[in-house]
Design a protein around this nucleic acid. Structure first.
Lengths: 219, 219
DNA sequence: ATTATTTTTTAGATTTGCCTAAAATTTTAT
DNA sequence: ATAAAATTTTAGGCAAATCTAAAAAATAAT
């Protein structure tokens, strides 16, 4: 595995996360995710295409190649191992680990990461419940549960939508719920079994039990 | 304390080490230490002068300002804490820690470093015997003398190795000399200034003056 | 005290990663 | 189907950190 710059690694990781589910990622989506401008994204896409880390034709969006996915999994492995270390050993609170791990993840000594993994006892999930890839890039499928079964105050990431009728997709679109959307269950109302959920940077809102049953999340 | 780039930090640290003893550092010496060219050094010196981290007049050499020294001690603190962590917790061999710590030291979250320090139990010395500055920049000075200055028939315990080049560490490894090794000076030969020393349960053997000068012992 | 040598600085390029503004292309709406 | 809007790319620039080659200054040698 070659060495990549911090910037390249951030792009690779962001594409990996965005392409989860749908198979191509747009320039604007990536620019927003990375707090950069679309023109910068285009520049980097040309560069990463040259390194064969992704497939890209102008105006057609991009997706990681197999090699690109391997690199992404390696970065994610580093990130999540450091998050585990910070929370478990250094007693960081779970909402403080991410920012620090963003820096530590770019220290790419394979020996360091493998020894850290061993020291931590080969953990399978990081403090947010995300699975940690092993040194070959394999990771456990974190458990998928219906949003209707997620307990209050628990966080989940939408990974699957069972019913894919027009009507359902229309509703999901309106509520801005997509594959990959991270949400938190706030309350459950026994009167009509509706569930109040909260998405990032939005006020909480309610959804019906019927809808919740069709949405699956990973912890 | 402001944030500095990896490159700036490497320059600051190198100047700190070079100016030990004499009070100004030359362009060429710094270029050689950093494996770069004199022209690059001059560029950076202008920049660091602008940030008030050092004193510099063209052609006159440079030395760190008080602020520069504070920054240097902070970088050294990070480096040595990570070295301690790598050796103590991850079981790296003492000659493997330096290279990895070179990367980790540039992750500059104060909270990370202070928590790491606490987790490690506030160690006073790193695996090479070098003192670790505390969060205020203070560090212990143990009574150290060069093995070259140790009188015959005197006992000492290796506490520090100044030169940490690959070549030096290779030689130490071969001679089985480590931090903590107890030894006795048997004889000194004026012809080539070589020194005969004896380690526990081993026959005496000779080392060069050059090597002895780089090894420090406590009495 | 000049000259020669070494050291240091300047001038001008290069690479990486980012930007703005304008052009090209695709998508959406009428 | 064409116009309007949104998206994406190109063109040209900028800052950081590096380099080479040439000029300037300091040091050493005769």
């Amino acid at each position: 595995m070659l060495n990549y710059s911090t910037s390249e690694e951030n792009y690779i990781k962001a594409i990996f996360h965005l392409q989860n589910g749908q198979n191509t990622v747009s320039t604007n989506a990536l620019a927003e995710k990375l707090n950069t401008k679309p023109a910068s994204v285009t520049d980097m896409m040309k560069k990463l295409k040259g390194k064969k880390l992704l497939h890209y034709e102008p105006y057609q969006g991009f997706r990681l190649s197999n090699e690109g996915k391997k690199v992404a999994l390696d970065i994610i492995r580093r990130h999540r191992l450091w998050e585990y270390f910070l929370a478990e050993k250094l007693k960081f609170k779970w909402d403080e680990v991410h920012a620090v791990a963003e820096d530590l993840e770019h220290v790419s000594s394979k020996k360091l990461i493998d020894k850290l993994d061993e020291y931590l006892g080969y953990p399978k999930f990081d403090p947010h419940g995300d699975p940690i890839p092993d040194s070959l890039g394999k990771m456990e499928n974190s458990q998928q549960i219906s949003l209707a079964d997620l307990a209050p105050n628990k966080l989940g990431e939408v990974c699957r939508v069972i019913n894919q009728s027009e009507e359902m997709l229309e509703l999901l679109k309106h509520k801005k719920i997509n594959i990959g959307t991270k949400l938190e269950v706030k309350r459950k109302f026994s009167f009509d079994r509706s569930i109040e959920i909260k998405l990032r940077q939005q006020p909480p809102f309610s959804i019906s039990e019927q809808l919740a049953k069709n949405i699956f999340v990973t912890l």
